[in-house]
Amino acid sequence: MRTIIFAGLLALAPAAYAEDTTTYEVTLKGAAFDITEIKVPAGKPFIIKMNNQNAAPAELEAKDMKIEKAVAGNSSIVVRVKAMEPGKYLFVDEYQEDVAKGYVIVE
């Protein structure tokens, strides 16, 4: 039963992707992101695309935005973020979280 529901949900996937959401791009190179402040309007869901230009894998993490996603070396990922309240939200490469960080500024 659960499997059937699950399969059904998967079938819905393409429809759900069709929506129009702004994508913000950020690139990790070495121990830093190229952009350390991403400005995003409040109350609207958005997508962050992270490019990892290092050979080593990374993990994009942002506790408040509920992001936790591994990124293979020299590749990219996308993450969906729900509509946020105005504020400043930290994102990091978890594997080097002391140095590789940036903020999403929702206003």
Partner: peptide, 19 residues
């Protein structure tokens, strides 16, 4: 899974890991 992280991520329009 670690070895295929990039490949898994590419599925489902980039949401393969979540699925």
């Amino acid at each position: 899974v670690a070895a295929f992280t990039g490949a898994i991520a590419a599925f489902f329009n980039g949401y393969g890991q979540e699925i």
